[in-house]
Amino acid sequence: MFLEVKNLTKSFGETQVLQGINFGLEKGQVLSIIGSSGSGKTTLLRCINALETADGGEIYVDGNKIFDAAEQKNKKSKTKNILNFGFVFQSFNLFPQYTALENITLAPSLKIREAYKQKSITKDEMKEKLAEIENNALSLLAKVGLSEKKNSYPCQLSGGQQQRVSIARALALSPDVLCFDEPTSALDPEITGEVLKIIKSLAAENMTMIIVTHEMAFARDVSDKIIFMDGGVISAEGSPAELFAQRENRRLQAFLSSFYDMAK
């Protein structure tokens, strides 16, 4: 397994939000996480991305242990696993004072400038790398169909465009696994499609992804594997065909039928 999450637990005060989550994901696969509100989907994603520190469990990427709750208690370094993952927020969280292009180049350029300050690269190398970063950002913007918006500020972009920039921003650091937390929930229904299309094209390029979503049809189309979360545990999992066929799981059926009702 490329990504392995083992027995992840997390509590907020008295309530245990994650009660031992186990799953694995092969490189190039797409995993969707579905489940009703409050079932712990966001919390799981945030624990994987080190935005929350899990109380228990381990995470491995490519055989390397990048998180171990037991070790976490002794030392305070939380940022270790961050760069294996990219994160796309429900509310985009673009930096308002930077243009679309600058939003994408900011973090990678800071790393290069830092390396130059630490004298691990020369000035010429830095310049070369910065140019590379800019070119890469431009091609990412082209990929999400926003080349002509490179100099626009977030406030000049629609929600769908902002989300596409934020996907490009996450891709700029070439993460091993790209995570999405309801990437289209903050968007008007008629523009969710433009964002979903980008995610599908990433799937076609074998980007490893974890997607929390309420778009059932999309999850079915794009996923290699779907996890249904319920009350902090994985209540059902499998390929889309397997999962949607699990008639005996009452909770899953109730959850899915609420979507069919909404669609009617």
Binding site: L51, T79, F85, G86, F95, L110, K111, A170
Partner: peptide
């Protein structure tokens, strides 16, 4: 400043 701004920086490794 929303938490999201800090978190966006954090997940970008800043």
């Amino acid at each position: 400043i929303s938490r999201g701004q800090y978190e966006a920086g954090q997940v970008l490794g800043m």
